[in-house]
Design a protein around this nucleic acid. Structure first.
Lengths: 228, 228
DNA sequence: CAGTGGTCTAGACCACCGG
DNA sequence: CGGTGGTCTAGACCACTGT
């Protein structure tokens, strides 16, 4: 095990065992380096990771303190739907329900940042696992910023795979919420109208311009889990 | 700006601008160090961060390659409910609805890892922002692993604040899902029974033993947002 | 002002693994 | 086997900030 990890693990052990109590001042890097018989740079790396992970707070001249309540964050990896299903050992299948080029409703225009009279590509798809409906996708793609989308074929593979291939690096904002299924969504996902469904909304930008907005509805009893 | 950040930004610029295309092999650390006129350690730190953030993949002898599809993850900071409300400039208030010591239902016993006949502390509370119901909390605390909880006072402040103070460092598993409000929850949150609500379930362990399980129901139209 | 952490350097050794 | 990245060191300079 690399020595910076040994230092990190030992400091963390002292924190969790309350030998370094919440709020307490830790020894300086030079002293720790002497204690562990490593270079200061090694201690620095260990402490930097502990800082990033929210266990300690550091200030020049002020020194390093154990955080009173650990600042924790959960990390969710954003799954590619196909990979998520196949890595569970299930067979992935895809169905294009709707493809049309129309003027989007007002709220979509607003997120896409286009004018009201500008047409966009609207897609509705269903992703299934072993034949069971898994995710309902309702997507808008701006033809203003991504005119190639007009000629792309979304009948075989989902728009996400095309988008990742076409625009691999982008900025994303994602929200999670609960939504009630409308009649069409309920039919596709084989649930009752009005059933609560876990929902993700994602807007993607490329070079400051919005390219797509998608609303993903997950099947019944879906839960997104993380540990920290 | 620190030079490792300059290196990182420039490499990232070359990746997003496709000068380093997906799958392409990047120059080695020694060559990059020469190009940027910095030490190899500085390049290494820049590249390590790009690796952590999912932009490139590195292998000894194999070199560094741009990932075909960027492996991205969203980070959600886990808010302390009081802080979340107060940082929005609203007045936080708390109400204890139920406090009882009973044998929990089977599924809770299972998550807490206690036997079926073992009693636990059951709390139901309501957190409000400016007087409007914001979050409904339904919590079980294992008295087997945390007997002090029996004598703690949860009438003024929520159990979360007591727990963080008492057991600051712990392992957590959190799930997000959609749930339908039952009649009591609906009444507390001032929504209709059956309305879809965003829900978080969290189980907390301390030294390998489960100490608490909580189900948090958020008010209508709540959404959890992150960028990446 | 002085002590802390943040960064940088030049050099080194080595584990890993592709050719 | 040889080249790559992973780590470590000793030393240095400096920005920030508490006292």
């Amino acid at each position: 095990m690399p020595s910076y990890l040994e230092v990190k693990a030992e400091i963390l052990r002292r924190i969790t065992s309350r030998k370094f109590a919440p709020g307490a001042l830790l020894p300086g890097e030079i002293e720790l380096a002497a204690q562990f018989d490593v270079a200061r740079g090694t201690v620095n790396r260990a402490m930097r990771e502990l800082t990033d992970e929210g266990f300690v707070e550091r200030r020049r001249k002020g020194g390093t303190r154990v955080r009173l309540s650990p600042l924790r964050e959960a990390r969710f990896h954003i799954p590619i739907i196909r990979g998520e299903i196949e890595s569970a050992g299930l067979r992935y299948s895809y169905l294009l329900l709707v493809r049309e080029i129309i003027c989007p409703p007002e709220d979509i225009c607003k997120t896409l940042g286009t004018g009201e009279a500008v047409k966009a590509l609207h897609l509705t798809c269903l992703h299934s696992a072993d034949g069971n409906p898994y995710q309902h996708e309702d997507r808008w793609i701006s033809l203003k910023t991504l005119p190639q989308a007009r000629d792309a074929d979304f009948s075989v593979a989902g728009p996400n795979e095309w988008l990742v291939r076409t625009v691999p690096y982008s900025n994303v904002e994602v929200s999670f919420l609960a939504a009630a299924a409308d009649s069409k969504q309920a039919q596709a996902l084989q649930v009752k109208t009005g059933d609560p469904l876990f929902c993700a909304e994602r807007t993607t930008w490329w070079q400051r311009k919005a390219i797509t907005h998608v609303k993903l509805l997950f099947g019944k009893n879906y839960r997104m889990t993380a540990q920290y």
